[in-house]
Amino acid sequence: MKFHLAINLERMTPDVDMHEVRDHTLEMVKMADAAGFEIAWAAEHHAMEMTIAPNPFQILTWWGEHAKNIRLGVGVVNAAYWHPINLAGEAAFLDLISDGRLEFGIGSGAYQREFDRMKPGLDQRDSWRYMQEMLPVVQKLWEGDYEHNGEFWQFPTATSCPKPVQKDVPVWVAARAPITFDYAVENNCNIMSWPLTMPMSEAETYRERLDASIAKNGGKYDGRWAMMRHACVYETEADRQNAIDSIRVQLSQFGNLLMKSGEVVNGFPEQVPLDSLEGNARVDPEMLEQNLMFGSPEQVVEKLKPYEALGVDAFIYYASMGLDMAQQKRSLQLFIDKVLPAFEQKDAA
Score class of each variant (00 low, 15 high):
residue 114 E to R: 11
residue 61 T to Q: 06
residue 182 D to I: 01
residue 60 L to M: 06
residue 61 T to D: 12
residue 202 E to V: 02
residue 71 R to D: 10
residue 121 G to T: 10
residue 70 I to T: 11
residue 7 I to Q: 10
residue 290 Q to D: 13
residue 259 M to Y: 15
residue 322 G to E: 06
residue 72 L to I: 11
residue 47 A to R: 03
residue 272 V to R: 08
residue 315 F to H: 10
residue 129 R to V: 05
residue 52 I to G: 05
residue 154 Q to N: 12
residue 57 F to L: 10
residue 124 Q to N: 14
residue 30 K to D: 08
residue 14 P to T: 01
residue 260 K to I: 07
residue 152 F to Y: 15
residue 20 E to I: 13
residue 200 M to G: 06
residue 1 M to Q: 14
residue 115 F to E: 02
residue 347 D to A: 15
residue 37 F to R: 05
residue 172 W to N: 01
residue 214 I to P: 08
residue 205 T to M: 04
residue 196 L to K: 01
residue 232 C to V: 14
residue 268 F to L: 07
residue 63 W to C: 06
residue 51 T to G: 05
residue 159 T to G: 09
residue 54 P to E: 07
residue 225 W to I: 00
residue 33 D to H: 06
residue 95 D to H: 10
residue 5 L to K: 10
residue 83 H to I: 00
residue 315 F to Y: 15
residue 157 T to L: 07
residue 144 G to V: 04
residue 307 Y to E: 02
residue 79 A to F: 08
residue 176 R to T: 03
residue 106 I to S: 05
residue 198 M to I: 04
residue 56 P to S: 08
residue 48 M to S: 05
residue 324 D to T: 08
residue 273 P to E: 11
residue 23 D to S: 13
residue 49 E to T: 12
residue 50 M to L: 12
residue 184 A to N: 02
residue 313 D to C: 05
residue 218 G to D: 15
residue 139 Q to C: 07
residue 210 L to S: 02
residue 127 S to A: 14
residue 248 R to L: 06
residue 231 A to E: 07
residue 210 L to W: 01
residue 184 A to K: 00
residue 4 H to C: 13
residue 2 K to M: 12
residue 35 A to H: 07
residue 192 M to G: 00
residue 255 G to Q: 15
residue 315 F to C: 09
residue 19 H to I: 15
residue 69 N to M: 07
residue 133 E to G: 05
residue 72 L to N: 03
residue 85 I to E: 12
residue 12 M to I: 11
residue 95 D to K: 12
residue 228 M to G: 14
residue 91 A to E: 08
residue 214 I to V: 15
residue 271 Q to K: 11
residue 60 L to I: 03
residue 311 G to S: 09
residue 103 E to N: 09
residue 339 V to E: 01
residue 101 R to S: 11
residue 2 K to V: 02
residue 184 A to R: 03
residue 308 E to Q: 15
residue 308 E to V: 14
residue 40 A to H: 03
residue 156 P to M: 02
residue 309 A to W: 02
residue 276 S to G: 08
residue 86 N to T: 15
residue 349 A to M: 15
residue 249 V to M: 09
residue 168 D to I: 08
residue 332 L to K: 05
residue 48 M to R: 05
residue 126 D to G: 06
residue 220 K to M: 09
residue 151 E to L: 07
residue 168 D to L: 04
residue 144 G to S: 03
residue 217 N to M: 07
residue 118 M to I: 12
residue 338 K to Q: 14
residue 318 Y to L: 12
residue 50 M to I: 14
residue 90 E to F: 14
residue 336 I to S: 02
residue 27 E to N: 11
residue 265 V to R: 09
residue 179 I to D: 13
residue 214 I to F: 09
residue 106 I to A: 13
residue 95 D to F: 01
